[in-house]
Every structure is written in C-alpha cells, then in structure tokens.
C-alpha cells in the first residue's frame, strides 16, 4: 500500500460580492472537490467567505524574487502613470 500524502492546495476566498478572491492559506486534500469542502470547513468557520477557489500548490508558477529588481523596479520611474504626476489648477474639480 502506498503511504502517499494528500497533495497541498492553495486556497483563495472572496469575502463578499464586489471583492477579489484573496489568498488565505493552504491545506491538504485528495482531490479538488475535497479541497473545496475542506477550505469551507477550515477557512470560513466565521463567515469569512462566499466563494472559494482552490488550486494545487504545485501548479502555481511564481516570479523569481532574485529577478524582482528587473521585473518591478522599472515601473518605479514611470511616475507619469499615476494621476498625482499632473498639475491641476485649484479651481478645477471632478478630475
């Protein structure tokens, strides 16, 4: 008999309509259906959610933190993407 452990799943929960699903943690389950049920029992005991996503942890691809400089620093110098970069005279509203 195999003594294989249940795979690890990442859990994402939408706390209410209008908000995105947010990563809350992980758990073990034999399959996706069980992962949803377990997520309901583990992570929504205090009415924290109305919708659940689960994804097997090994299927998540993450960016490499060692490349964080190359990936994310260039955006820092593009301040013109932010509205506060622009001067608007005092009398102008709704902008």
């Amino acid at each position: 008999m195999s003594n294989k452990e249940w795979p690890l799943w990442e859990v994402f929960i939408r706390s209410k309509q209008g908000l995105s699903h947010k990563h809350v943690g992980s758990l073990r389950a034999a399959d996706a259906e069980m992962a949803i049920d377990n997520a309901r029992d583990v992570y929504t005991r205090r009415s924290e959610g109305i919708s659940i996503w689960v994804v097997e942890s090994k299927l998540v691809t993450a960016s490499d933190p060692r490349e964080a400089d190359a990936l994310f620093d260039p955006a820092d110098s593009k301040v013109y993407r932010h509205p506060t970069f622009y001067d608007v005279p005092d009398g102008i509203s709704h902008m």
Binding site: N38, D41, R45
Partner: peptide, 11 residues
C-alpha cells in the same frame, strides 16, 4: 484521520 477531517467532523 487527518486534520482537515477533524475540523469537518467538529463542524
């Protein structure tokens, strides 16, 4: 039999 199931049964 496993932590997750413990929590489920307690519910």
């Amino acid at each position: 039999p496993i932590l997750e199931e413990d929590i489920a049964m307690t519910n």
